[in-house]
Design a protein around this nucleic acid. Structure first.
Lengths: 339, 339
DNA sequence: AGATTTTCCGTGCACGTGCACGTTTCCTTT
DNA sequence: AAAGGAAACGTGCACGTGCACGGAAAATCT
């Protein structure tokens, strides 16, 4: 592995000059710059990560993480991934500040400001989808504070990378599973949080796309919204099942799975309905284990937490961006045996 | 983050002494050692990874990797993970030597010897399951050459860690999927490579365990062996289906999936048989996409390749062992939509 | 031509660790 | 008591990088 020192010796200049050329800080004649670059290319120079990190940690790195929910089971799992990575990064003299807030634009702005006052060097953000947040991300970029979006992406924002699901694809996967796990005429009910939430509608679109193309035996009887709330979910699901006795399959495209399942049980429809859900949380794990939920499609929250921090850290210490700016986690299918 | 220098200053000794205490190289009075340890604990000292790596790479690290198969699709994917990690480790002045050999004990021994002559500092090994290999791993350990087993574990050997599947659990997952994806009376055929291969028999045991406990509608009509060979697989599967016209499900617990599927197609049984397989390879991906194979359970070969090297590297540069010595990858269920 | 600015480049230190080498202290032996 | 040796500890360098500082050469101005 070539080092800066080697390049300096071979091109007859000092290490400082090589440094200036490679990181184009200017103040180098084009002639020498040319020669240095040529030799660096010939030696296939790649900066040494240990040296890079060592130099970068002169000023102790501080990273900020902003997630939703004070006891949101999904983000709790993301948090575990964050904590795991935090422990690793501690070995690089890098600290992590985590803020969990409720789903609200102004709170998110406030959290960002607070992290800025703590002088963080970059932020991992589960973004609230609003123009004001997009603007904030862009202004952070201009200030030199890179942002990695996690779980939800913000289109047309200058975040340096996204880590999370491809919601359309995971909806398709849900449709595929339901197709494989059912026979005969199927009347499916779709439960989502809200038509305003892009993640939910993307999943539903994927689900419908799949069954329309591949599984004509499945029809969508009705689509309802539960606002991601367990109590609301119980009621709307109960009403749905009462109004539609023909329903023999349910697709939960969002949260509120526990409440929905409780409604199914309350109406004694456990053994007549095939249920597919997303995410894996402690409250609903038992339903997967006992077979009420046939399968659940997870989005690897742990991986999202750890990977997003990792990308941010690499960017700040080595200036490296990931190959793809959208880092999709695979749709992770879980049934009773591998949950 | 506390550093050795800080500890030295606080305990009134030099950095060298602190180093001796923390890495117990001796030559330190028990009194000072006690004091240093106390202060180190109070400051929650953890060695800085960048400094550690930088110091370790004075002698350029060389890692060896021994996998099977010259064009084995599964190990090709493991190889991609190895290559990915190799690229990352290159930034730490660490090189990786890869050897792909056929499934044979003496060839494996020879490959190990060859890597030793290249002066590797540690080895990632997809081990041949034989006492002579166990002994070899142990003698490597005594020589100070750590071994990480990948894909298959060797019980009672002194490998420092294992990265790979839990085969029994993945067999159970296959059983669970078949249970969920079938209705009515099911006569299942089981195809494995050989009764001598522990991975295969573990999977079959998991499969049987699951359907016996949870899915009594599934019966095992017959179990056959295909020696992991495509041509052999075609013939034995064809014979099986001819002798057992009642078979309406197939579980491929090992390789030879392509040959087996071809037999199903040759006998025009595509639409009457539910097929569950393991692993995802280019030759059979199309069968998953067009629905001949309902689902395939993968063992995350890429992750196995990258993680095993990572563990070995961390051990050699920081002396760190993973929390668990058996690092199981999750059973990764794939259907047409998420393959 | 001399003074001043600009361009260009070299040197030294810091980051945290491991390790070889030196130095001091203390104990044992003759 | 002097000599020898072992135990205990300090010092300096190396690893690779970024960056601040300063010096020399070239270009511009008075």
């Amino acid at each position: 592995m070539a080092t800066i020192k080697e390049i300096a010796e071979l091109s007859g200049v000092s290490r400082g000059t090589v440094d200036r050329v490679l990181n184009n800080r200017g103040s180098v004649s084009s002639k020498t710059a040319e020669k240095v670059l040529e030799i660096a290319r010939a030696l296939d120079y790649k900066p040494n990560r240990a040296g890079l990190t060592l130099a970068a940690q002169k000023k102790r790195l501080k990273l900020g993480v902003i997630l939703f929910g004070n006891s949101n089971p999904f983000f709790d799992e993301v948090m575990k991934g964050v904590r795991y990575q935090e422990e690793r990064l501690a070995g690089y003299n890098c600290s992590v500040l985590v803020r969990q807030i409720s789903y609200d634009a102004s709170q998110q702005i406030a959290a960002i400001e607070e992290l800025l006052s703590q002088e963080v060097h970059g932020i991992v953000l589960a973004p609230y989808n609003a123009p004001v947040i997009t603007e904030k991300i862009n202004s952070l970029y201009d200030m030199g504070i890179p942002v990695v979006t996690v779980n939800t992406d913000i289109d047309h924002s200058r975040r340096i990378a996204y880590v999370g699901s491809n919601y359309f694809l995971s909806g398709e996967t849900a449709g595929g599973l339901m197709g494989l796990m059912t026979r005969g005429e199927i009347q499916a009910g779709i439960v989502l949080g809200s038509q305003q939430v892009l993640c939910h509608t993307d999943r539903v679109a994927g689900f419908r796309n799949c069954i329309e193309k591949k599984y004509p035996h499945i029809h969508v009887a009705a689509t309802i919204q539960n606002q991601d709330d367990e109590v609301e979910s119980f009621h709307v699901t109960q009403t749905l099942l009462q109004n539609h006795p023909e329903i023999n399959a349910l697709y939960f495209a969002a949260g509120g799975v526990y409440g929905g399942c409780k409604a199914v049980i309350a109406l004694h429809r456990e053994h007549t309905i095939t249920i597919i859900t997303h995410d894996r949380v402690d409250t609903t794990r038992c339903f997967v284990l006992d077979g009420l939920i046939s399968a659940t499609i997870c989005q690897q929250p742990f991986l999202q937490g750890s990977q997003s921090l990792d990308i941010l850290f690499n960017y700040l210490t080595a200036g490296e961006l990931p190959e793809k700016e959208r880092n999709y986690v695979a749709a992770d299918i879980r049934i009773a045996e591998n949950i």
